[in-house]
Simulated assay, not measured.
Amino acid sequence: MRRFSLWLRDKPVVADSTLALILLILDLVIARDSTNPAAFLVFSVLLPLPIALRRVYPRAMAVTFMVLSFCTSTIGFIVGDPTVHAALLGHGIMLYTLVAYVGRREGFWYALALVADTAYGMAVVTGFKLGDLAFVGIYLAFCWVLAEFAGARRAYDAEVAARHAVAESERERRAHDAVSAERTRIARELHDVVAHAVSVMIVQADGARYALRTAPDTTEKALVTIAGTGREALRELRRTVALLRTEQAPDQVPQHGTAGLARVAQLMRDAGLAVELELSGELDDLAPEAGLGVHRIVQEALTNTLRHAGAHPKAWVRVHRHTGDIEIEVTDSGGVPVHPEARIQGSGLGLAGMRERMAVLGGSLEAGRTPEGTWRVYARIPLAAPDTE
């Protein structure tokens, strides 16, 4: 049953068509009371049609339903048929759709048009009846309140889903960083093993060259040492390289440059963080390590902002490439989280990780609260990486 409900949620036309069919059946039931069945049946079929597409084209279908309602009253006046269509209950459905899926402003204008349409219908067809007016008012008020609850729940669910998407992206990023750190460790081990083995082989080869004629036994011993050391180094080299041969999936490789920064900003916007992104200078031809550094600093800073942001959080990201370095500045509006259950749980190592990355790149990082109460992260990455050999 739950699987069917989820499937139905993804197929709004199916559910709304069922609702339109119910209105059609209700209209057909009272068609026998009409004094002009032919005209009544035409509008019995036409009125429910916009209901079937109400969530696909909410504004257009609301206008269409309102026009059909006006035409129904006019035709009823012309043919002298005071029978009210049951399908006009769709007005409340349309009002609910606009408030819940579009906005209160559209719902307000539709309610005003509905008041005018109801007054017109009662004036020219049925006459003003206090009981009918009370029913219409209560019905529309109920639809509006129901739409408010449904809209608020949908907005909350969308925010939580977006924050979970950010959390999932954060987990993938940390997993990628862990793999990168492990590969770096393996590379250092490989460097140490090969450097040690080659150094031993060079020393032994130099000794063997000097002792070649005067001490053949010593030369033979040195050659045996060279061969053994070479074989051991080769075994270690093969073992280490085997660990490095695992390829990463394409979707796990971070996207650098302006496209990557835009993707991070959009991901945060979807999670409810208003991000203003300002990029200047050529950022698409950076060295891989510098491009990854910019990407990670912005991503980590925005994630921290989202994690600790208050109501209606905002962040301003500025990345500027100079001749010799790159400046990164991320500031936020500060505050306290308004939805603790949707808050992203971090490891508490975000700033430490950014500082370590800056240290590797030879850059600098400043992070702290400003006198205005906002949080600011400022980093500078030199374009000429320092030589660590």
Rank of each mutant, 00 (worst) to 15 (best):
R163Y: 00
H164T: 13
H164Q: 14
H164V: 15
A165V: 04
A165G: 11
A165T: 08
A165S: 14
V166L: 06
A167P: 00
A167C: 06
E168I: 10
S169D: 12
E170D: 10
E170K: 08
E170F: 14
E170L: 13
R171V: 10
R171K: 10
E172D: 12
E172L: 14
E172R: 15
R173V: 01
R173D: 04
R174W: 09
A175M: 05
H176Q: 10
D177Y: 08
A178F: 09
A178W: 11
A178Y: 10
V179T: 10
V179W: 08
V179I: 13
V179N: 05
S180T: 14
S180L: 13
A181Y: 05
A181M: 08
A181L: 07
E182K: 15
R183G: 01
R183P: 01
T184S: 15
T184M: 11
T184L: 14
R185A: 12
R185C: 04
I186W: 05
A187E: 15
A187Q: 14
A187S: 15
A187I: 13
R188I: 13
R188C: 08
E189V: 09
E189M: 10
E189W: 07
L190C: 05
L190N: 03
L190I: 09
H191A: 11
D192C: 05
D192L: 12
V193I: 12
V193Y: 06
V193W: 03
V193L: 12
V193M: 07
V194K: 02
V194M: 08
V194G: 02
A195G: 12
A195D: 11
A195M: 05
A195F: 06
A195I: 04
H196A: 15
H196W: 09
H196M: 13
A197W: 00
A197L: 07
V198N: 09
V198A: 07
V198T: 10
V200S: 03
V200K: 08
V200G: 00
V200E: 03
V200N: 05
M201A: 06
I202Y: 10
V203S: 07
V203I: 10
V203D: 04
Q204L: 05
A205G: 00
A205N: 04
D206Q: 07
D206F: 03
D206E: 12
D206Y: 06
G207N: 07
G207Y: 04
G207W: 02
R209E: 01
R209C: 01
Y210L: 07
L212P: 00
L212M: 03
R213T: 06
R213D: 07
T214F: 02
T214M: 03
T214R: 09
A215N: 12
A215R: 06
D217W: 03
T218P: 03
T218K: 07
T219Q: 00
T219E: 00
T219I: 03
E220R: 11
E220N: 09
K221T: 14
K221R: 15
K221Y: 11
K221C: 12
K221F: 15
A222S: 14
A222W: 04
A222N: 06
L223W: 05
L223R: 01
V224S: 13
V224R: 15
T225Y: 03
I226W: 00
I226R: 00
I226Q: 00
I226K: 00
A227T: 08
A227S: 12
A227F: 04
G228Q: 15
G228C: 13
G228D: 15
G228R: 13
G228F: 11
T229F: 02
T229M: 01
T229L: 01
